[in-house]
C-alpha cells in the first residue's frame, strides 16, 4: 500500500477541504479544527458532485448540490439524500506534507 504525497499541510485551511486528483481518481482532503488530516473519495455517493466544493462543519462534509452529509472521519452517510458511505483513506504528515495511503 503506497503512501502518496498529496499536498502541503498549508494547502488546506482549518475546517476546510480541497480536491486532490490522483491517476483517474479524485479525492477530498480535509483538515479538522484540531489540525488533523483526513481523506475520502472526492465525489458524493449520491451523484457525481465534488465534495471539495462543499461545506466542512465540525467533523462533517456537506455536499454542495443536495446538502447530503457525511462524517469525513469515517465516511459514514449521515443525512439524505446520501445513503452510501464514502470510502476513506489513511493519512500521515511528514515534513509539512500530507501523504495518503492508496491501494496499488
Amino acid at each position: 500500500m503506497p503512501w502518496i504525497d498529496a499536498c502541503a499541510t498549508d494547502d488546506v485551511d482549518e475546517e476546510d477541504v480541497i480536491r486532490w486528483d490522483h491517476g483517474d481518481a479524485t479525492f477530498a482532503i480535509y483538515r479538522s479544527m484540531d489540525g488533523a488530516f483526513f481523506c475520502t473519495d472526492g465525489l458524493c455517493t449520491h451523484e457525481q458532485v465534488h465534495l471539495a466544493d462543499g461545506l466542512v462543519m465540525d467533523n462533517e462534509i456537506e455536499c454542495p448540490k443536495h446538502n447530503g452529509l457525511f462524517d469525513y472521519r469515517t465516511g459514514k452517510a449521515l443525512r439524505a439524500p446520501v445513503c452510501v458511505n464514502l470510502g476513506t483513506y489513511e493519512t500521515k504528515i511528514e515534513n509539512g506534507r500530507v501523504f495518503v495511503e492508496l491501494s496499488e
Binding site: H46, H66, A80
Partner: peptide
C-alpha cells in the same frame, strides 16, 4: 418530497 426536491436540484 425530500427526494423529489433533491431531483429538482439535480
Amino acid at each position: 418530497w425530500r427526494w423529489s426536491h433533491a431531483r429538482h436540484h439535480t
